[in-house]
Amino acid sequence: MSGDEASSYNNPNEVWLHGKGAWLAYILLLVVLRLAFASVPFLSVPVSFTLTNVVHNMLSFYLFHLMRGTPFVSADQGESARLTQWEQIDAGAQFTNTRKFLAAIPIVLFLLTSHYTEYDPVLFAINFVSLCIVMVAKLPQMHKVRLFWFFGRKFVDHEK
């Protein structure tokens, strides 16, 4: 799937994200998360849906945008060790299918959530803020940008 990429090697840390199976698994995990919250008896529908949305966004923000490095050895002399998972996708190319899919998921989830929360302003605010955080992090303008000190040391691009 990534044979037409500009890079001459596959980054084992991100190639699995291209698979349609991975996308399906993502959606199924989301459904499982939703059902897990739905099965807690004392949670109302709006609260359980909000929890689903916020937990999903927090997890994806941590895994895609905060955590850096490579569990598997990549063939780039450690270049991707300083990149987040999101930055490693498709060797940094923007608006690829994988990126589009991963960006569409939180939006759709937010739309569903806002209906099932019955437009409660407090829940809306929580959901919207969590959506904004993950969507801003996915913007091409934020590629290799490190915002706050607690997100780690400054990014120094050796390529330039």
Binding site: A93, Q94, F95, T96, S114, H115, E118, F124
Partner: peptide, 30 residues
């Protein structure tokens, strides 16, 4: 959506739906 949601909500949702459509239509940099 159409009778009970506040107006800001409808506008926001419209924008979000548009953004998904834009994502689908937009060509990859690659």
């Amino acid at each position: 959506a159409f009778y009970e949601a506040p107006a800001y909500h409808l506008i926001l949702e419209g924008l979000l739906v548009l953004s998904i459509l834009w994502l689908v239509v937009r060509k990859s940099d690659k």
